[in-house]
Design a protein around this nucleic acid. Structure first.
Lengths: 203, 203, 203, 203
DNA sequence: TATGAATGAGATTTCATTCAT
DNA sequence: AATGAATGAAATCTCATTCAT
């Protein structure tokens, strides 16, 4: 019966995943390194072997897990040919699926909660996550206006409004859902939002 | 006697106000009882004279400060006579003004951040804040449909979508604004959202 | 039966004394804050109430305890009238008595051991302790030469040599005595050193 | 087989040298096994292959490195024919050169700092280093008295006084020099001390 | 024999809460 | 009623030592 195994390569990801789950539900301060270690199946010391401090671990978690997701979505839509209306629907749905399936629904809540404790991280998030998605949406809206699918509008503000609901839904899913109406589904709210928005902007 | 009833003295309110300011900006764990005491101009011991624990203080703060705001809005619209379109605009704007002017923009972030640490509080918030506003909005939408101002729609989901943006904007204001584009204004985003929504639901 | 007493004024000195005893025997790293607290009859938290960190406590201990002793000796000899030979004997004996009676024999060892960990403190010690005593001794030697009591000599180096033995004796007393010949006495070694030195420098 | 005997391999010596350098500058607790391993060009595990614990390594270091130095000096003077005055000068200078050139100036500081943590080691040091040098010096002094070079005196105490300065100088070199007057040199202080002592004891 | 990943006991520090004054 | 000194539980982080590879 071995006391432990040598798993140099797998450890970082395992620890990051454990961190995501716990930070995501309990927040930065309430999550204890011991909990993360237990969740990852290692000892406290091992966490420190890979990440020099709790703060570093937190930041790395966001950096390492968010960026690939953004790129995924960017890639997914980059070759799109067709109506912007369809594309907008695609983007919104795709975003939610990506975030949900990779367990990242807790991240927006974390960033909002800990913004002032991690200014660098928040700047990163605003620039590399929020602004990049924003750009994607603005482009779609602009193209739609050009191609006569959408009315003229302030596309920057419209993009913000569209995204605001999506982000809220992901926070609601993580924090409030269990205290709210059990049968409410993010997917339904998203569908309704798409309808509303398209009705509002379509020509 | 409900526990969120005001006491006669001035002290409790002063402490609550201090708590609102500090919890609202730094979150529950990072706010120290000592900070609140200093901010309220009293000593640490005095805080404990009025609130038996930090958790209680936190809960009371939400109870005592949120309820009157809801009632304010409910009262404000109760005697309304006129178009539902106008009323919807009024409600949305009024809500933001009320929250902003009473320094409560930080509350949604707090609730979302600390939901699992304060299940009772979250239940209270969902029931007495979210659902009550939701009801208000749903009524307006239903009346609008009845009076032929609005299209037929799933008013419950639509109300959720409308509110989601509003709540997100208040979190953005508290946490992300300073790391985001400086010239973005919540008021403009709200205005754009109203336009979008009305374009989407108007007949 | 009281759990504790309020002793705001006495605490700092009590903690400093406990720190002196423990740091002096076990060194900086091996002395635990818990030990100091126990020795001072308070809890760990109380130590932190008065000194914000272990390092600060250590530095304060040296600052607060050494300076008055230097001043004591300076004062003691300032009004001296008479032979420099006698004065030199007085100074040497007085220094040892002062250091011994105030429990400060451990300080030189501490400074030597921890010099690189506390550069500021070491600079302070070199400047305000070593150099001040050095100046005192050099003055006496110079006066002695002037008054024809002593031979011409390099008084700066001679002062260093005289002091070196004294400092070593105090380290020997703290660290080695108990492992060395039990009947050896610092006082005897000092006496012998005075004889030797005076024989060496007297005309 | 005494435990401080050299092993045949090169490794133990390399580790010991690394230990000497690091313990000598940073002290026992602040020196990490990892640092020693890195300095010796091996891995942490390898250190434990040769020395069962940090404490053992520390002790062995002193045992293995000090003894040959003492023997060197003993040998050096054993065949001496001539004036004891010259011999005393020789011994003092030789001691300093030996210690300095083999990087052992840090040892006295270490012994003094860690005495109570390593009672065995301290006893060894007192017996096999201090007392042996002491004996050498006392013999020279006794011979000098016999041969009418020196006055009658308490040779035991005089030897202590002579050595005390030397030991202090080596601690000063290791710890305080860089915080003290930059142009002071141990060699000059030793020269002055020799002068002083000889003037004091010569007939 | 050699490595360095993994462990866990133990240290410093923080701070909600208590309680002497 | 008010204060703030005192407490001690709990959290982060370190590192000597072990042991799988």
């Amino acid at each position: 019966m071995q006391k432990w195994q040598r798993r140099k390569d797998e450890r970082p990801t395992e620890i990051l995943d454990a961190a995501l789950e716990l930070f995501g539900t309990k927040g930065f301060v309430s999550t204890k390194i011991d909990d993360i270690a237990k969740q990852a199946g290692v000892s406290k010391g091992t966490v420190y072997l890979y990440y020099p401090s709790k703060e570093t671990l937190f930041k790395e978690m966001v950096y390492v897990l968010m960026l690939p997701r953004i790129k995924e979505v960017e890639l997914y839509i980059s070759n799109y040919q067709g109506k912007q209306t369809e594309l907008l629907i695609l983007i919104i749905n795709r975003w939610w699926q990506t975030i949900k399936s990779s367990g990242l629904t807790g991240i927006p809540k974390l960033i909002i909660s800990e913004a002032d404790k991690f200014p660098d991280l928040t700047k990163f998030y605003v620039k590399e996550v929020i602004h990049r998605i924003h750009t994607i949406v603005v482009n779609v809206l602009n193209n739609g206006v050009k191609q006569n699918e959408f009315k003229k509008m302030n596309t920057a503000l419209t993009a913000r409004v569209i995204m605001s609901s999506l982000v809220y839904f992901s926070m609601w899913e993580t924090s409030l859902k269990k205290y709210d109406k059990k049968d409410l589904k993010v997917e339904d709210m998203i569908e309704q939002q798409i309808k509303l928005v398209l009705d509002g902007i379509k020509k």
